[in-house]
Design a binder for these strands. Structure first.
Length: 327
DNA sequence: TTCCAGGTAGTCG
DNA sequence: CGACTACCTGGA
C-alpha cells in the first residue's frame, strides 16, 4: 500500500530547510538516506513499519513538504502526517522563535545562518538514547556509522523497491548482544577457523568502550527505567532518572530529553556551546558546564533547546567555532 | 606518526 | 563535591 500527499505551507509554521535539519548532526538519529532528492527512513506509524519518503525544495523555505509513505500494513494518512510533523518539529513556530532571537542582540545573527533549521526529533526514543550515548567524545561520522551498523546487525529487515531498511533493535535484543570479539567467540558452539572475523558484537560497530554502557543502559531501560515512564515525567525528574544510565552524563541526558522526549527546555552543554556562551555573554571568563546549563535554561526558557541548536550551527558556519578552537 | 573528536566514569584530595 | 585523567576508534 502506498500513500502520497503534501503538507502545505500553512501547515508548517515558518520556514523549513529539510536538508540542513537532517544533516546537522543532531544526536536523535543518523541522517536519513538520500535518494533521488528524497530523504527516506523506516519508522513506526501506528505500530506498523512504514517507509517514509520526503522531499522539500530548500531553496524556497516556505514551499510544500511532499510525503510518500509505503507500508504493507494499513496506516492512516493522519498517522503518517503526525509522525513527520513530530520528527521535523513542523508545529514549532519558527517565526515566533526568530522574534525571540531578535530580542537578544547576541542571538540575532544566528537567524540568517540557520534559516529553516529545525529540531530533528527521534522517531524512536530508545534509538536516540543509544545514539546519544554513542556520540559522547566521538565524531558525528563515527557515531552515525555505529548506529547504522547496530540497526543492520540486530534490527528487523524490511525490503522495499528502493532498498532494504532496518528498524532499531528493542532494548531486550540490544541488551543481550555480545560486547566484544571474545564474548562473541565464547558464545559460539562450533569450532572456528583461526582467521575467523567476529563482527556480530557491539565493539565491532565502532562504539569502543561505550559498548558496555550501551548494553547495560538497554538492560536498565528494559527492567527499571521504562521509556513510557520517562515520557510522562516532567523535565527535572526525567533528567535525574536518565542520568542514572551508564554513559549518560549531563550533556547526553539533555540531548536525550531534547531530541528523544521533545523537552524543549533542555539546554545540552558540550564544549562548543560552553565556549560560545562564554564568548558571547562572559568574555574573558570561564564557566563550569553546569553554570552554562543553568544560564541557558534560565535565559532561554522553553526555547533553550532551539537556541543551543542555533548557536552551534551559527558558530560553525560563521567561522566563530574555528576562532574558539582549543581554548 | 600523532592528534583529536559535540563527555563520562573512576580516582584522589 | 571539585579537579584530574584514561578511554575505543579512525580520519586528517
Amino acid at each position: 500500500m502506498i500513500t502520497q500527499f503534501n503538507i502545505k505551507n500553512q501547515k508548517i509554521k515558518g520556514p523549513l530547510n529539510l536538508s540542513l535539519t537532517i544533516n546537522s548532526g543532531q544526536t536523535s538519529q543518523p541522517p536519513w538516506k538520500e535518494s533521488n532528492s528524497y530523504f527516506q527512513e523506516l519508522i513506526q506509524v501506528e505500530g506498523a513499519p512504514c517507509l517514509v519518503n520526503i522531499k522539500h525544495d530548500d531553496a524556497d523555505t516556505d514551499s510544500n513538504l511532499e510525503i510518500i509513505a509505503e507500508s504493507t500494513e494499513k496506516v492512516s494518512e493522519k498517522g503518517i502526517k503526525n509522525s513527520v510533523r513530530e520528527i521535523f518539529s513542523l508545529d514549532h513556530d519558527l517565526n515566533q522563535f526568530y522574534q525571540f532571537l531578535s530580542e537578544d542582540p547576541k542571538l540575532t545573527p544566528t537567524i540568517e545562518f540557520c534559516q529553516g533549521l529545525r529540531l530533528f526529533n527521534a522517531h524512536n526514543p530508545f534509538e536516540c538514547i543509544i545514539s546519544s550515548i554513542s556520540s559522547a567524545n566521538c565524531s558525528i561520522l563515527r557515531w552515525t556509522r555505529s548506529v547504522n551498523d547496530i540497526k543492520r546487525k540486530w534490527g528487523d529487515q524490511y525490503h522495499f523497491d528502493s532498498g532494504d531498511f532496518y528498524s532499531f533493535p528493542v532494548p531486550n535484543v540490544l541488551g543481550n548482544v555480545p560486547e566484544h570479539d571474545l564474548e562473541e567467540m565464547q558464545r559460539c558452539e562450533d569450532e572456528l577457523p583461526e582467521d575467523f572475523i567476529f563482527e556480530n558484537n557491539l565493539q565491532a560497530c565502532g562504539v569502543g568502550y561505550r559498548a558496555k554502557y550501551i548494553i547495560n543502559a538497554a538492560r536498565m531501560i528494559q527492567s527499571e527505567i521504562g521509556i513510557q515512564k520517562v515520557a510522562r515525567m516532567r523535565y527535572d525528574e526525567a533528567f535525574d532518572t536518565i542520568l542514572q544510565l551508564p554513559g549518560v552524563g549531563p550533556k547526553v541526558a539533555d540531548c536525550i530529553l531534547l531530541y528523544g522526549f521533545k523537552m524543549g527546555e533542555a539546554f545540552p552543554v558540550d564544549v562548543w556551546i560552553k565556549r560560545i556562551v562564554e564568548h558571547l555573554y562572559f568574555p574573558g571568563e570561564e564557566l563550569k558546564p553546569q553554570e552554562v546549563r543553568v544560564f541557558g535554561m534560565e535565559r532561554y526558557g522553553d526555547w533553550a533547546g532551539y537556541v543551543q541548536l542555533y548557536l552551534f550551527h551559527y558558530a560553525r558556519k560563521s567561522g566563530l567555532l574555528e576562532s574558539l578552537r582549543k581554548k
